[in-house]
C-alpha cells in the first residue's frame, strides 16, 4: 500500500510533536516520500494528552488527516487507552513498556514494547525518551530509513544535544532490531 498513516501520542513534554516532525522531515526530504503532518491545537491540546499525526505516501497526499492509522506509538497510558482501538487488524502498536499497562496481549496487532524512558535516562536524560522511541519505531516499522531519520535531526533538536540524541535514537533502533528478531523467532 502506498499510503501509511501513523499516530504519535503521549503526554506533554515527551516530545511527541517532535517525533512526528522528525519522521515527516526524514520521509519527505531524505527518503523521497510525501508526508503530511498535522497536530491538535488549542484548549483540547493543552494539559497532559498530546498527539500528532503523519500521513505518508509514494504520491501526493490529498487528504491530510489520518482516517485509520496503521501504526500507533503510545508513550503514555492515556494515549494507549484513547487510541489503540483505532488500529486495524495487523496494525502496529508500539508502547512505552514501563508507562503503559496493556489491557490485553493484542493478538490481532503487531505489538512492540520499549522501555524508552529508562533507556533515555541511561543515555543521560529522560528528555531523550522520544528519540529512543523513534529509533525503535524506525527499526520495527521500516516505514522510514534510519539514515534519513538521523539526517532529519539537525534543526529539530538543539545543536548541543545532537550527538546525544543520535545516541538515544541508535539505542532505540538497536533494541528494535533485537525485538524484530525475537518476534520473528517467536512466530
Amino acid at each position: 500500500m502506498s499510503t501509511q498513516e501513523i499516530r504519535f501520542s503521549g503526554f506533554g513534554g515527551q516530545g511527541i510533536i517532535r517525533c512526528a516532525l522528525i519522521t515527516g522531515k526524514a520521509l519527505s526530504l531524505y527518503d523521497d516520500k510525501f508526508a503530511t503532518m498535522t497536530q491538535s491545537f488549542g484548549p483540547e491540546a493543552r494539559g497532559s494528552a498530546c498527539a500528532a499525526q503523519l500521513v505518508m505516501s509514494d504520491s501526493r497526499i490529498l487528504y491530510p488527516y489520518i482516517t485509520q492509522p496503521g501504526v500507533l506509538l503510545a508513550l503514555s497510558q492515556e494515549a494507549y487507552d484513547k487510541y489503540y482501538g483505532e488500529l486495524p487488524k495487523g496494525g502496529v502498536l508500539i508502547v512505552e513498556q514501563d508507562l503503559v499497562k496493556l489491557k490485553s496481549d493484542h493478538p490481532d496487532l503487531k505489538l512492540y514494547r520499549v522501555p524508552a524512558t529508562r533507556f533515555a535516562e541511561e543515555v543521560g536524560n529522560r528528555l531523550f525518551t522520544n528519540l529512543v522511541a523513534l529509533g525503535f519505531f524506525t527499526a520495527v516499522t521500516k516505514v522510514v530509513t534510519a539514515d534519513a531519520m538521523k539526517k532529519a535531526l539537525p534543526g529539530l533538536v538543539p545543536d548541543r544535544f545532537l550527538k546525544v540524541n543520535i545516541k538515544a535514537f541508535e539505542k532505540g533502533y538497536e533494541y528494535g532490531i533485537e525485538a524484530l528478531k525475537t518476534a520473528g523467532a517467536a512466530s
Binding site: 516532525l21 515527516g24 519527505s28 526530504l29 508526508a35 503530511t36 498535522t38 497536530q39 491545537f41
Partner: peptide, 10 residues
C-alpha cells in the same frame, strides 16, 4: 485556512 496553515509538508 487552519488546515494548510498548520500542516507540515515539504
Amino acid at each position: 485556512d487552519e488546515t494548510v496553515g498548520h500542516m507540515h509538508e515539504k
